[in-house]
Amino acid sequence: MESCNAPPPSASKPGFLGFGLGLRSQHYNDILTGNPAVDWFEIISENFMVPGGQPLQILDQICERYPVVMHGVSMSIASTAPLDFEYLKAVRTLAHRVRPKWISDHLCWTGVHGINLHDLLPIPYTYEALDHIAARVHKVQEVLGRPLTLENVSSYVAFAQQDMTEWEFLSELTRRTGCYLLFDVNNVYVSARNHGFDPIEFLNGIPREPVVQFHLAGHEDHGDYVIDTHDHDICDDVFNLYRAAVERFGAVSTMIERDDHIPPLADVVAELDRARDIAADVLEHFPTKWTPVRRRKCDKTKSYSADPIPSDRNVL
């Protein structure tokens, strides 16, 4: 077992941003011409890791108006293939442009042998994997010059030999590397259903300090199993788990991921308001200086010409 516990590049823990949405091309026009009640946006990093053109122009306009965080899908932090430093440099270049509050990716692997399966593949929760991933997180944090934020993924298979639970693995990884956690509430729900563990036990097994963000999303329920599709409204069970997460972790920046069957912006904003209401209800009973943000004022009203925009490719 590796004993390395080097601190991450110096940075203070990001503060609470309020309630945000995943930035999706279908909503660009409404965001830039309207004033949606959204406190911040999360971008899929890879959608903007392109040479130029309109995507980056729109991104610049969004960044002028809203706090933005970067969320990647291709870092493959758990892969046994060598780290892709060209990819990491591209992430860093985009971060210079966006000035994100934090940079996140997933605790998973996406491929080996030069192939990318463009999926978030599960890992065995072993000390071997922990040593391997912790070493890579240190390297990534050196390149990015800041702590990395890692998200727990949904999984459909689990490995027979495991040295610890997923929540123990995440906790130990943050302790060793100083990385932050993006706690995906829906993913915990999906994996709990698929593997038969108690999501509250998962939640209570995660330390409070490293958690900087919550994800909320919908899924596809097949009865015997659940698939994390991000193409449905958020179900009551996930909202209930979110309530429990807020009770444990307090005021944590929260956002909704919607990647398919994307409804009008107003509908997603209404769903986001439900999360606001839950957090406001819970936090009334907890000591916090946070006051719920209802609407972020936007002073700039630049016009936006709606040229054809290709669909977001990198969504998982």
Binding site: Y156, V157, A158, F159, Q161, H195, Y225
Partner: peptide
């Protein structure tokens, strides 16, 4: 498949097929 833990309700084979 022999290295995977049986899921809560579904068949392991079917769960692998999701990927």
């Amino acid at each position: 498949l022999s290295q995977l833990r049986p899921p809560a309700h579904a068949q392991t084979d079917a769960m692998l097929d999701i990927y």
